[in-house]
Amino acid sequence: MSVVISGLGVGYGRSPVLSDLSLEVRQGELLVVAGPSGCGKSTLLRAVAGLVPYTGQILVDGAPVRGTSRERALVFQEDGLLPWRTALRNVELPLALQGVPRAVRRSSALAWLDRVGLSGFEGHLPRELSGGMRQRVQLARTLAQQPSLVLMDEPFGALDAQTRASMQQLVSDVLRETGTTTIFVTHDVDEAVLLGDRVVVLGAGEVDVHRDAILKAVLA
């Protein structure tokens, strides 16, 4: 799935959060959007997800974004799980919404939980899991949904360094494996360079940099 954004504007009330933003995400690419807090990174994701009204154009595979769709999954920084559902039933949820039969969605959810290393925690409620584990459940849920585009909003922002590193590895592996187009938002430059095929820096005029260029700059 490819995304073409041109002249995007989003405003809550009078002051615009985003104005005249243009960028492009190619099929199968992992694009990192970096920038300081409050520069509109999350708003950009919410607009692409179809959660907020916008001006300008967001084309996903050539079609303008209108409303939400299961093809465009959003991964939240934290607390995106429904607290009254167990880990397993949270992962099953997108499939349940699509009307997938119970047995099928159960085996799929179990497989994804296993993939993110949470076998044995199927019956745990979110409050019984650590922050890192909850984010892994959220990731499993997003993957079970099988979207064409994954939008990740600082998903590891609240995690400790070690958990964060293992999650980054996992995300990078799984998303590349499945060839899922991804927009990954972070304010952490290291994370941006590590994960992105390409990095776009928001705020103070958009800067579009290739990973190699950044690496060269960092190493110099």
């Binding site: 959660l51 939400t68 769709s69 299961r70 939240f76 799980l81 429904l82 949820l93 949904q145």
Partner: peptide
């Protein structure tokens, strides 16, 4: 928001 972006 989570449910809607799952297509709910």
């Amino acid at each position: 928001d989570a449910l809607r972006t799952m297509g709910g």
